Structures are given as structure tokens and as C-alpha cells.
Simulated scan of single mutants.
Amino acid sequence: MNNLIIFAHPNPNSFCKGIVDRVIKTSEENSANVKVRDLYKLGFDSILKPSDFEDLQKGKVSEDIREEQENIKWADVITFVYPVWWAAFPAILKGYIDRVFSYGFAYKHEDGQANGLLKGKKVILICTTGSPSEAYAESGMHNSMKQVADAGIFKFCGIEDVRHTFFGAVPYVSDEMRENYLMAASSVVKECLASNKSTV
């Protein structure tokens, strides 16, 4: 079992990094192979450029995109860990999706229908917010973010099993609550890996 972790937070001492560490530990304890792509540490170029479209039309892929697509191919489970900024992905992560989940790799159109090409994979999204989860849930924002990310991106690409977890008010909660969050992250990963084992 292969778990690819996509990490998008600029602070290496953030709580998100603590989540990444726990996801690594849980994955390894459940006999999964792990790779981490720390987008800020890598200096990933998140800008979709005209040359990307030109390469796509010529059937070519730039080396930085090719490397990430090979990682996606390798993965059985893709775990995204990131903070919610302005009710969405950080720009670097949105740019990663724009460039890496490209036409012909993640999806294509056949007979006027969109066909997802990443079938059989699973996605976990673990994201932190500064505001309490109750505020996001009551306003409908959690559902909106799930619709955009889960349905609009990953299910569109053929990934049916998408698990989305929000941890709210991270800067303000107690250390005990943060440990509860880490335990919850561990549980999601463990359950996902276990269900994957039963299908392969």
C-alpha cells in the first residue's frame, strides 16, 4: 500500500506539519509505503503557464509535472494536508492541482462525456481552519468546500472514495483538543488503508 502525502503549509512548525508526522507514523505502522511532497519546501511552481498548454498540445509534459504525476501513479492513497485560507486551498496547492491533474492524465473527454482516469485511488483531505468548525458548518461553508474539492476535482477525476476532515479553531483550542485532532487524523488514515487492503 502506497500513501502519497501532499503537504501545503509554509511553516515547518505548524500544526499541519504535526498532522503530516502523525499520518506518516500511522501509515508506517499499518505497513504502508510513504512519500511526502512538501510543496513549499520543494518550491513547487504553482503557476500554470502558456508553455504548459503548448506542451500538452504537443503530447509533452514538463519535467516538474511529470515527476508529480509519477508520484500520483505510484499512490494508492493520496493524503492532502493543508490550511483553509479564504475558504479554499492555499494558492500553491490549487496551482499543484491545476498543473498536475491535467487533461489526458487525470481525466479526458470521450464521446462528449468526461472520463476520470484516476479510478481505484483514494483521497484523504485533512485541513485546518482558524474559525471554529461550527461556524463553517452552520454557514454551509464545509459543504461548499466539499462540493468544490471532493466532487468538482477528485470525483471528476474518477476517485470515488474521498474522505474530508476539518479541524477547527486550531490556534485557539487546547493541547488536549489538538491531540484529539491528531488521533482523528490517525483513525481516518488507518481506516482508509484497511479498506484499501480489502479491495486489492
Rank of each mutant, 00 (worst) to 15 (best):
Y40F: 12
E67C: 07
E134M: 13
G158Q: 07
K41H: 10
D52S: 04
F101Y: 12
A135C: 13
Q69M: 03
L193T: 10
D161W: 04
N30S: 12
W85L: 08
R163Q: 14
P83F: 07
F154W: 13
G158D: 01
A8G: 02
T128M: 04
A169G: 11
V36G: 06
K94P: 07
G112Y: 05
G59L: 02
S144F: 14
W85H: 13
A8E: 00
A91M: 05
C16I: 03
F101D: 00
E179C: 03
N71R: 12
V189E: 08
D98T: 03
K35M: 13
K17V: 03
I124Y: 06
L39K: 05
Y96I: 02
I159Q: 09
K41P: 04
S62L: 04
D55I: 00
V123K: 09
N30A: 14
S14Q: 07
L117N: 01
Y136K: 10
C127R: 14
H9N: 14
G112V: 09
I97G: 06
V20R: 02
A88F: 07
K17P: 00
Y136H: 15
K146W: 09
A184S: 14
L4F: 06
S133Y: 15
S198Q: 12
Y82T: 04
N30Y: 13
G95C: 01
V188A: 10
A87P: 00
K146H: 11
N3V: 15
S139H: 05
D111Q: 14
F105E: 00
E68A: 01
L125K: 12
I72E: 00
D76C: 06
S31W: 04
K73S: 05
D76N: 13
Q113R: 14
I65T: 01
A91N: 06
P132N: 11
D175Q: 13
I19R: 00
N11T: 04
D76R: 04
K35F: 12
A106K: 01
V170P: 10
S139W: 03
D21H: 07
K155L: 05
K49M: 09
D45K: 05
P132I: 09
E28N: 10
D98N: 05
I126Y: 04
G130H: 08
R178L: 11
F53W: 08
C192K: 12
T79G: 07
F154Y: 15
I72K: 00
A87G: 07
D161Q: 13
A149G: 05
D175F: 02
I19H: 00
E70R: 06
I97Q: 05
P10T: 06
C127E: 11
S133T: 15
P10A: 02
E191G: 13
F105D: 00
S102H: 00
K108C: 03
V162Q: 11
G43I: 03
S51D: 13
K155V: 04
E28C: 10
K17R: 15
